[in-house]
Design a protein around this nucleic acid. Structure first.
Length: 309
DNA sequence: CAATCTTCCTGCGCGC
DNA sequence: TGCGCGCAGGAAGATT
């Protein structure tokens, strides 16, 4: 479920509570939440207990919490990585709080200023997961992502492209990659190795704003059209972030269990049959890549039907 | 090699 | 009210 804005809301909420905190106990009650972890629940629990969290970083939809070295010869450094999948949540609770619905993993932490706290990973559909991973140098030598102050990234995040809000996002290179592909532009937007952080909601919203049909091949778009698309991607991500993310139900919430407001600002996603806010024609929903695409059939013409200025 | 298909889960809302 | 079906914010890994 969560895309970049929702994951960033979680990162920003987690950071003040856990940076500088020590993990005092770990309960991995559901091993399905550790599918990215190399080892069983017991090894996860033992490896994390006693460790100090030094940060909370994000690239695209991946989160990670770097750990202080366990000993002088502990290299490479480790991190707890988290991907929320479709329905994952990170919740901050009082120490000893009742088990959450869909709770999979709990970290009990002690912070020198804030005292005892529980960090709960809850996930209805279990597509999300946590893992312990090694930090490795970034390919471009820049910091790993938002919230990171080191040129390091977990090994499982190396293949993930920079997101469009990242200072190190190389727009010229990404525009060239998009234009080198014959795939549908929406598919390219959802390919996290090209550009990260964009999922089904924000892809539909950015394409609507840029007036580009989701099935337009990447190599049919002008440089100008792709640049306009990324400008709209950035705009929609920032606006959603400012509004606390998109919440349709109880699945997407911040670390305190609160919903965001961006669902009220959607122009295309989930609005099939409702008038396009720009031209009034009903928004259409198509099946695409086993998911749904929402677009305006007048404003977003397929390739060749309207000039892509 | 790049593009596409399959699979992992639970739960909700809808139509019958 | 109950039941089956379709659908849901993702992405790794297999397959063509």
């Amino acid at each position: 479920m969560p895309e970049l804005p929702e994951v960033e809301v979680v990162r920003a909420g987690l950071a003040p509570a856990v940076v500088g905190a020590r993990i005092v106990a770990v309960d991995a009650r559901d091993a399905r939440a550790l599918t990215r972890h190399d080892g069983d629940a017991g090894s996860f629990e033992r490896a994390l207990t006693g460790r100090l969290i030094t940060g909370v970083a994000r690239r695209g939809k991946f989160l990670w919490m770097p750990l202080a070295p366990a000993s002088a010869d502990d290299a490479p450094r480790g991190a707890v990585i988290a991907h929320l999948g479709m329905s994952g949540q990170m919740l901050l609770r009082a120490s000893g709080a009742l088990v959450e619905r869909h709770e999979r993993v709990r970290l009990d932490v002690h912070h020198p200023d804030h005292g005892d706290l529980a960090v709960v990973f809850a996930d209805q559909r279990t597509f999300g997961s946590l893992a312990i991973d090694d930090l490795v140098p970034t390919a471009d030598g820049r910091v790993g992502g938002w919230g990171s102050d080191e040129a390091l990234v977990p090994s499982q995040v190396v293949h993930i492209g920079r997101d469009p809000l990242d200072d190190a996002f190389d727009e010229a290179a990404v525009v060239a990659r998009v234009r080198a592909k014959r795939s549908a532009v929406k598919r390219i937007l959802l390919d996290q190795t090209v550009v990260s952080g964009v999922g089904n909601i924000y892809a539909d919203e950015a394409l609507w704003a840029a007036r580009i049909h989701p099935e337009t091949p990447g190599d049919a778009l002008s440089v100008r059209a792709v640049r306009r698309l990324f400008a709209e991607v950035r705009a929609v991500l920032l606006k959603a972030l400012a509004e606390g993310g998109t919440s349709f139900d109880a699945q997407y919430v911040n670390v305190n269990g609160q919903a965001g407001y961006f669902a009220h600002s959607l122009n295309a996603y989930g609005r099939d049959g409702l008038p396009c806010p720009r031209c009034g024609r009903p928004i259409v929903r198509d099946s695409f890549m086993n998911r749904s695409s929402h677009y305006c059939p007048r404003c977003q013409r397929p390739t060749g039907s309207a000039p892509l200025r």
